[in-house]
């Protein structure tokens, strides 16, 4: 006998969040199952360790549970909303960890979390490229310098000034790389996806 499907499974994200805002735990469970993999992957990419990613993921979804009423569908999809929460929580976690006396040690680990761009020949880079092959690879639209600046910004939460100091580059150079990189990605996506 086939068990009847939970009707919530067919409900759109925005409607699910409306139910979550009314403290409907079943709706939340469906929403979690729908987005947990993307959320966890993003958290792991940012914080670089499974236990920390677990914490970030749990913290972010609790925030979803408790503030679903704040979601405004006019401002974007529910998926982008939850992933933005995950990203922000993960960056907060990184900042708590890295902006302490452990910062210098952690900076070394950045090279492992965000390996050198393609062409620099590390094993981590090869693994990363294999993993990225399954994704939209939007970052592969960028040259190595642009990619590094945007990764440090988006996945590590560094400001342009911090990136300039870290890479020992003039601030103007960092700004230019970031803006050119964003433009390239925007144009690639507008043209139908990465080439």
């Amino acid at each position: 006998m086939v068990a009847p499907r939970d009707p919530a499974a067919a409900v759109a994200d925005a409607a699910l969040l409306e139910r979550v805002s009314a403290m409907d735990a079943d709706a939340f469970e469906v929403f979690y199952d729908r987005h947990a993999a993307a959320a966890y992957a993003l958290a792991h990419r940012i914080v670089g360790a499974r236990p920390a990613a677990d914490d970030v993921c749990q913290e972010a979804f609790l925030a979803v549970w408790r503030s679903a009423g704040a979601y405004d569908r006019r401002l974007g999809s529910a998926r982008s909303w939850v992933l933005t929460i995950v990203r922000n929580r993960a960056i907060d976690h990184l900042r708590r960890v890295t902006r302490t006396k452990e910062r210098e040690m952690h900076d070394d680990a950045l090279d492992q979390r965000h390996p050198a761009p393609p062409g620099q020949g590390t094993e981590a880079t090869a693994l990363r490229r294999a993993a990225d092959a399954e994704t939209r690879e939007v970052l592969d639209e960028l040259n190595a310098d642009q990619r590094r600046v945007i990764e440090l910004s988006f996945y590590s939460g560094y400001s342009q000034s911090e990136i300039a100091g870290m890479l020992e580059l003039p601030l103007g150079t960092v700004k230019a790389r970031m803006n050119r990189g964003l433009t390239r990605m925007r144009n690639a996506l507008a043209a139908g996806g990465p080439s």
């Binding site: 993999a37 993307a38 993003l42 982008s80 925007r186 996506l189």
Partner: peptide
């Protein structure tokens, strides 16, 4: 769209059952 692409530019990985 760039921001959204970056949010999803990661192969999905399910968290441990304990998290759920």
């Amino acid at each position: 769209p760039v921001r959204l692409a970056l949010l999803e530019d990661v192969p999905p990985v399910r968290p441990s059952p304990a998290v759920r």
